[in-house]
Simulated scan of single mutants.
Amino acid sequence: MRKVAARCTIVSTAPALALVALGSPALADEDPSGWGAVQEASDQASGQKDGKRYSASAGQVSLKGDAQGQEGSARGGGNLSVPAANWEPPPCWYAPKYTPKELKKEVDASPYELTGQRPDNGRKKEDVDGSIRDKYTKGDYKNFNLKKQGDGMFWAAVPNPNEPDKAKAQSCTELPFWVKNGEQPDVPGAIDTKILAALAYQAIEVPDTEVELNPKNKQTVRLPTWTWLDKATFKPVSVTASVDLGGGEELSATTTAKPGALNLDPGTEDAKLHPASGKCPAKESGTIGTPYTKGNAKKTPPCGLTYLRSTPKGETYTLQASVVWEAAWKGSDGTSDTLPDGTFGNEQPVTVQEVQSINR
């Protein structure tokens, strides 16, 4: 079954977002879920999942959430598709990264690498190396703030491994800067609840959108087809992204997506949709559509379609069903907001027969 929308425009990582450390600009190009990238992008990355929950951490950000569509699942699943015109996740951000000792080790090894650019063999590299070393030894900081070991961290740039534009992923060009434990710097791009919420949204994975049909196998010309979603499967899913600010302080944001509507496309112009818009809104109970019950064969379903022409012999119509997921987030600091709707769907082959009468 071919997926119509399998991941966010940037997207993600379903069971785990692969966040790479400074100086490791590897991107998750092959694995649509991003799970494999967690293992490959950084030696500091780690992740695990089971049938219901997953956890992952890398790039100083930890993710915990619902695991949908795990390997071996009958329904599959994936990340939400969000039009780039409506929303894009951060291409990079700044987060706590180095202790004074760790930063000194990095600078001693290769100061130029802190810029996120490839060093060359010319004079430019030598000049940059010298100015960076001076910054942390006798400029903005004295001897890498070694006397403040344990009092804070150097925040550094973290590229989003799922950002397809490598230039954007490396657009956070500030050199590591000092922040006291428990504090948030007033620096554009410094990780906050809004960025954490975006990373959590990017990581959300929803179940496959295979709708229940009645009739189940072959449809009949001019006989309404009832469609609905399994309430046990289509329920709100959440992911929490957090970062340790030091001093026992943690900042986090939880993003939750819930089914808002089911969109139907019969795959042919010779069909009527119910409702006419083809959009079946979710009820307050969370259900979408109404399961068919005996005796309703000729009634108009609240969510469904009626095919007006049979499929040619040996062929099928392609029914497209996609769920619109409504998203919102809450931060540990009391902040909250909504996010643009995301969608996920698939295609189902449908055979329509010509029958004069039928009893169900």
Rank of each mutant, 00 (worst) to 15 (best):
Leu245Gly: 01
Lys138Glu: 09
Ser62Phe: 01
Pro275Cys: 07
Asn162Ala: 11
Lys135Trp: 12
Asn145Gln: 14
Asp50Phe: 08
Ala200Gln: 04
Arg123Trp: 07
Ala85Leu: 10
Asp192Cys: 07
Leu19Pro: 04
Ala261Lys: 05
Gly247Ile: 02
Gly65Pro: 02
Glu163Asn: 03
Leu22Thr: 11
Ala58Thr: 03
Gln117Asn: 14
Val107Trp: 03
Thr254Arg: 02
Ala41Lys: 09
Tyr112Leu: 06
Lys299Tyr: 05
Val206Lys: 11
Gly295Leu: 12
Ala26Lys: 13
Ser252Cys: 12
Asp186Ser: 15
Pro215Gly: 07
Ala21Asp: 15
Lys298Asp: 10
Ala200Ser: 06
Gly342Asp: 07
Asp333Ala: 02
Trp155Val: 07
Asp120Val: 06
Leu305Thr: 00
Gln39Met: 14
Tyr136Thr: 05
Asp244Tyr: 01
Asp151Trp: 07
Ser110Pro: 00
Tyr112Cys: 07
Val20Ser: 14
Ala74Leu: 11
Leu245Asp: 01
Leu22Cys: 13
Lys49Leu: 13
Lys97Pro: 01
Ile191Met: 13
Tyr292Gln: 09
Asn359Leu: 13
Leu63Val: 11
Asn296Trp: 13
Ser238Gln: 03
Thr338Ile: 11
Trp155Pro: 02
Asn160His: 02
Gly260Ala: 06
Gly289Asp: 02
Glu102Met: 09
Ala21Val: 11
Gln68Asn: 15
Leu308Arg: 10
Ala6Tyr: 01
Val187Cys: 08
Ala67Ser: 10
Glu315Tyr: 15
Tyr112Gly: 00
Tyr112Ala: 06
Leu251Asn: 02
Thr227Val: 08
Phe144Glu: 00
Leu175Thr: 11
Leu273Ser: 03
Ala45Glu: 05
Asp165Thr: 07
Val352Phe: 04
Cys280Arg: 02
Pro188Val: 11
Thr335Cys: 04
Leu196Cys: 09
Gly139Lys: 07
Ala200Pro: 02
Lys3Gln: 13
Glu250Ile: 13
Pro302His: 10
Val323Trp: 05
Ala67Ile: 00
Ala45Gln: 08
Ala74Lys: 09
Gly78Asn: 05
Ser33Asp: 04
Phe144Asn: 03
Val187Asn: 09
Gln170Leu: 15
Glu163Tyr: 01
Lys104Ala: 06
Ala21Pro: 00
Ala257His: 10
Cys172Arg: 02
Leu339Phe: 09
Ala18Glu: 01
Asn296Ile: 00
Ala198Met: 06
Leu264His: 03
Pro302Val: 09
Asn296Met: 15
Ala169Gly: 06
Pro302Phe: 09
Ala271Tyr: 00
Lys235Ser: 01
Gln353Arg: 15
Gly78Asp: 03
Leu19Tyr: 04
Leu17Glu: 03
Gln320Phe: 07
Lys218Arg: 13
Cys303Ile: 06
Ala6Met: 03
Asp66Arg: 00
Ala282Lys: 12
Ser336His: 12
Ala95Thr: 13
Lys294Phe: 14
Lys64Cys: 00
